[in-house]
Design a binder for these strands. Structure first.
Lengths: 196, 196, 196, 196
DNA sequence: AATGAATGAGGTTTCATTCAT
DNA sequence: AATGAATGAAACCTCATTCAT
């Protein structure tokens, strides 16, 4: 978050709203400028081009997203609890900001390959947080020690991501956060019946 | 599959190739017509509009995709084996058709919300197959009976989808099919260390 | 001149008129299309981009310009007469097509360096015609044999060009063709008083 | 030259450099301000608008250009020598200031009709100097007395101008000043072989 | 059934100029 | 006198779709 750059943040917030309301391809720079209350040209004092707005939107929002999750996890005592908190915070944050959920789950994915790569890059720190939890769980001997970490991380992220996308596509008609226990159970224990 | 409509299939196949080679946004109708060996106008004798081509591509390919998986599953004896086969076939089919993998995992996702909904609709039969396996596993008492089936199905699909997408984005540098055991283990048993 | 391409020629002629009437920088593609009676997009079926229109205008017009001069010169018997005819035809052709004169003398010179180089390239055949006359005059021993041909050609072209440009800038208020004898006299004899 | 206006001259010099280095169309006011070491807005304390900068550049430089030629000519005894000196000085001054040569011969000509008229106006005093030499030559009876003075002046200027432009376009690969004798010979004697 | 020439709407970005400080 | 952040108009080109042949 660039401090003391009110216009920068105005534009970022306006971009999220405009994309959520109009869809990715109907999000003209003029519309963003209008909602941000600045002239079209002013956009280009703060962003290199339209793509730069979109990447910045993702970076800013993702930065805040990760920071909140990292904070919430910090005082948890073990990997299982941390994982639970991560899932819950992931769901809750998107649940509380419908605009952001639409933008990250649907609209920003319509961007082309180059932009997608930049967006994926902004996702790296989040994936690292997941990796750390997996490693901690292995050390604590609550997770198996033969886990393929990158693959497991993909599966955890894929699981949460698909749940959120379905929720967004169903127009957020049900409560997302309450899916946390089931999602957590699936990730830790899978589908299997526990043997006694 | 429309039978006895050779041009229809020519256009579908051309569309997959053009999208895989050029990317979604660089796939003009004229390019598809060119590769299919027909005039631009001819496209509109077989498809309502460009979106109709893309939806049809997905429907045709998804139909074949599901049929093969359904066939392979039919003679498996229990839910665990069926699930294993489903995952393996999912990975293998995309592994063997790189064009299709690029198109389904990356390019078609760049379409707008409306088209995405239609594509999701074509996915329904596949999701039903997954649902059936889950139900069967519950009946066989190898899966827990308190599973939220739609949620679990999303998680299974999300897990596989994310693995495939990562593989495509890493330019298919490693073997996808060999990820099957780990993916299957994650889905059935989660991360937890099994107690003896 | 591309034959049997009526739209091609319509666009070329429209471009000359639009540039002459509005000036180089106010010559939008839309204006040219409008005057040519075609849709904006049609322009791009015949020309790669706007620059291509402008280069083509110059090439087409210069081709006709040179051809007429070459024809007129062919049956002249000596270098002095040929030079006289070249000057007269140069002046007359621009005199008879005011639009073309404005475009070549004023408007097209506002183009950037790259376009200027392409335009200069189209001028080469004309400069070769001048060179040939100079060489012929030397062989006929009516011109000095120590002439620096490229330099002399520049001087001849520069002389004519400056006269035409001045005439265009003075809004063609006087007769250009009647400057031929004086221009010819200057080029052949310079300023000096002939000694007896 | 506005005396005691250091910023005025800074801006003029910066403009010449920026235009020579970047070309006419890439010479934004901001770039000129940057090179001059002043704020964008400061430009408008000294110049009415961008066109005014360019006209002033030409006027300032042309004033110095003419003054030097006028000084050099003053102590020559006859028209032929004065003409020789004028040509030599014309070539030498542009030869010694490549930036200025590029700006006057190529870049400033890309301006629109209105600006070109103002630039031509600044050229008037120079053309008057040429006129005076022609008149003096006629009086001295070394030039013909039936010369059309404005036309002859255009031809002399056009000759020199075309030579300089060619030299600039050939990227100044050869020596310009040494073209003086040939240019002078062409102007005084034309192409004709002298009769004895 | 097939063609392909023609259409025309729509948006990102630059940059000269202003004016509050 | 000097600053520099903010303004906002303006145009090239692409490409899905049509329709006369």
């Amino acid at each position: 978050m660039k401090k003391n750059k009110p216009k920068y943040n105005q534009i970022i917030e306006a971009a999220v709203e405009v994309i959520a309301e109009n869809g990715y391809h109907a999000s003209q720079v003029a519309k963003i400028a209008g909602k941000a209350g600045v002239a079209d040209g002013t956009i280009y004092l703060y962003f290199k081009n339209k793509e730069d707005i979109l990447v910045s939107v993702f970076e800013e929002k993702m930065g805040q997203f990760i920071e909140k999750i990292a904070n919430a996890i910090r005082d948890k005592n073990n990997a299982v609890e941390k994982l639970y908190t991560l899932i819950e915070m992931h769901f809750r944050q998107l649940s509380e900001d419908h605009h952001l959920a639409v933008v990250t789950q649907l609209e920003l994915r319509q961007s082309d390959k180059e932009l997608r790569l930049k967006i994926n890059h902004a996702l790296k720190p989040y994936l690292a947080v997941i990796d750390d939890i997996i490693k901690e769980g292995i050390e604590e001997k609550v997770f198996r020690d033969n886990l393929n970490i990158p693959l497991v991380r993909q599966m955890i992220f894929g699981t949460m991501d698909e749940i959120v996308t379905n929720w967004v596509m169903k127009e957020q008609k049900y409560d997302l956060t309450s899916q946390t226990p089931d999602a957590h159970a699936f990730i830790t224990d899978g589908l299997s019946l526990k043997m006694s």
